[in-house]
C-alpha cells in the first residue's frame, strides 16, 4: 500500500543524467591524464595527479555550493567518481566548521567517507593476505 502511493523515480532521466555527467567527469579525467602523460609524468604518477586535480576541483565546486546543485540532477553521476568521494569529505568539513576545527572539521570529515576507507582497506588487506600466502593472481590474469 505504501509502495503504491509513492511517486516513481524518473528512471530514464536519472540514468541519462548519471551517464552524461559521470561519463563527462571520467572524460575530463582522461584529458588530464593525457596532459600529465604528455608532460612526462609516469603512468602511476599521472593517475595520482588526475585524482588530486579532480579532488581539488570537486572541493572548489563543493565550496561554492555548486557540486550539490549538479548532484541533485546527476545522482550517481557525481556520487560514484572520485569527485563524489572528495565531496563526501569536504562538504562535512565545511558544514561542521561551526562545531570547531577539531570536533567539527576534523572529526566530521569522516562521517560519510570513513566507512569507505575502512572497508576499502579491510578488503585490500584480505586480498593482500590471500596474495601473500597463495600467490594467486586472479582468474583472468
Amino acid at each position: 500500500m505504501v509502495k503504491r502511493a509513492c511517486p516513481p523515480s524518473a528512471l530514464a532521466t536519472d540514468c541519462l543524467w548519471a551517464f552524461g555527467v559521470g561519463g563527462g567527469i571520467c572524460t575530463l579525467g582522461e584529458g588530464l591524464r593525457q596532459l600529465y602523460l604528455s608532460l612526462g609524468w609516469e603512468k602511476d604518477a599521472a593517475g595520482s595527479l588526475v585524482s588530486v586535480t579532480l579532488i581539488g576541483l570537486s572541493g572548489l565546486l563543493t565550496c561554492l555550493g555548486l557540486y550539490q546543485k549538479l548532484a541533485a540532477k546527476a545522482g550517481a553521476g557525481t556520487l560514484v567518481p572520485i569527485t563524489g568521494f572528495a565531496n563526501s569529505v569536504i562538504s562535512p568539513a565545511i558544514e561542521f566548521k561551526a562545531e570547531g576545527l577539531i570536533t567539527g572539521v576534523g572529526a566530521k570529515m569522516f562521517i560519510i567517507a570513513g566507512p569507505v576507507i575502512v572497508y576499502g582497506l579491510t578488503a585490500s588487506w584480505v586480498w593482500g593476505m590471500i596474495y601473500a600466502f597463495t600467490g594467486w593472481t586472479g582468474m583472468g590474469g
Binding site: 509513492c6 511517486p7 516513481p8 523515480s9 524518473a10 536519472d14 563543493t62 565550496c63 555550493g65 557540486y67 550539490q68 549538479l70 548532484a71 541533485a72 540532477k73 546527476a74 545522482g75 550517481a76 557525481t78 556520487l79 563524489g84 565531496n87 563526501s88 569536504i90 562538504s91 562535512p92 565545511i94 558544514e95 561542521f96 566530521k108 560519510i112
Partner: peptide
C-alpha cells in the same frame, strides 16, 4: 538537514518521496 540528513554541500539526490 545538517542534523538529520547530510551536510548542505553534500551531493545527494533526494528521493521523490
Amino acid at each position: 538537514e545538517r542534523e538529520f540528513r547530510t551536510p548542505l554541500g553534500y551531493g545527494g539526490q533526494r528521493t521523490p518521496t
